[in-house]
Design a protein around this nucleic acid. Structure first.
Lengths: 235, 235
DNA sequence: CGTCGGTTTGAGAGCCTTCAATTCTCGTGG
DNA sequence: CCACGAGAATTGAAGGCTCTCAAACCGACG
């Protein structure tokens, strides 16, 4: 769980720039905003629509995606509780956002945030911190995938989901995959068939076990980690 | 050319936080710093070294890369004149930086930048702007590659290089590729052989022509663009 | 003129995709 | 509680694309 535990502030307290404490963090600010809820599969916003708000995910999972002209869907990121959506947006959403599960989130208008930032170096500083974090995770999560075979990509996804749930992988750790094989494929740059076959291969090799398609259990941590890191994939 | 044209400031002018103008941009600030020069193939900094400075590229091309445990090199980004290196770094460099060509750059210590930002909302705001830009280009340049075949990846690279040189692709536009086929492969997630074969295929189809391996000319703009965008790759 | 790094080309193997069919899962309604 | 249906997941076969390994080519440079 990445969320801070600071007490929420009433919205009227933060709309007035002068009352923004120097130590204000973006997460604390967002936790003081109106809460919104979405059903699973609900689209939160569409690509190219005017980008008017920033969200803090309180619970649930969201996917950010867009389509290539060839019709392939490209999921750029999965978002989990504690993640902030939309900090890097300009005037238009560069991607669509869809709920993988039921979602609750706090919502803040971009223009208000912009005004608050102009008066609070601490808040602006926190924006920089979060943006850096986005770049780092893009760098760590997504980039290496391109140079890895399918098994490693799946292993890396499992590790990412485990970590986002706050747990390092250890023997027996259950990992709940709330997204479909198709979602995973569109994130990893594979097809759902290949993803399915990679899961089977990992099962056959005793790296993971699977009670249902959505519930994976880690069996061989070493092997899973070395696959995820991209070491040689010899049997 | 991305560089601003504001007049350079003497270094002493900006080291004192109180003298930082409200309208200060990061680029203008950096252009007032000491200039450094590197030979081609020179390593500017190594992965995991303490990250102490931010650079503005004045001329030349730089690659940012790291190695996967399997020995594959992964180029995360090519940087061109006007690009800023190191804004998103924490205490350690997450990648190595190597000069593809001879390079000149302006250098500023991160700690000084941090101090200046703390006193200049305008500068901090510009940092946010540049970070957003990095996220956007990561999103536009790198992510789609994973879902595209090799020809499209090469086409996309050509378009990227052309744009970074300030030119939209048009018939006859010459594109100078200062990096090697191996560099391109490590950026696109392919091998140098496959990159070479993709260039050949594009030549055979009349999409491009090539006077030397490093000098490409655009012949069929429509086809090149639709390949780069990822439309169906039928003959 | 020889060397060395980079590029191209070829052959074969392996991985991933496509297309198609089957099985599984789970929410819904009886 | 069970049966059903729709979407998701799995499995199979065939083909295409990319990789590996290897050799030949090219150009810059001493």
């Amino acid at each position: 769980m990445l969320m801070h535990s600071s007490a929420p502030l009433a919205a009227h307290q933060i709309v007035d720039p002068s009352s923004v404490a120097e130590a204000m963090t973006l997460t604390a600010l967002l936790r003081a905003q109106n809460k919104v809820a979405f059903n699973a599969k609900r689209t939160i916003f569409h690509e190219e629509a005017p980008a008017d708000s920033v969200l803090l995910l309180e619970s649930g999972t969201v996917s950010l995606f867009r389509f290539l002209p060839n019709g392939r869907r490209l999921i750029s990121r999965f978002l989990f509780a504690g993640d902030i959506i939309g900090l890097s947006f300009d005037d238009e959403y560069p991607v669509s956002a869809e709920c993988v599960t039921p979602v609750t989130a706090y919502q803040l208008s971009r223009s208000v945030l912009q005004r608050l930032c102009a008066h609070s170096p601490a808040l602006q500083n926190d924006v920089v911190r979060v943006l850096k974090g986005e770049l780092t995770s893009e760098h760590e999560d997504h980039l290496p995938l391109m140079h890895q075979p399918s098994d490693s990509r799946v292993a890396r996804l499992l590790r990412m989901v485990a970590r986002r749930n706050g747990a390092e992988c250890q023997k027996g750790l259950p990992i709940q995959l709330l997204m479909t094989r198709g979602d995973i494929a569109d994130y990893l740059g594979l097809t759902n068939e290949t993803v399915s076959r990679s899961f089977k291969k990992l099962k056959d090799q005793g790296v993971i076990s699977e009670s249902s398609p959505n519930l994976i259990r880690v069996e061989d941590v070493q092997r899973l980690m070395s696959l995820a890191d991209g070491e040689e994939a010899s049997a």
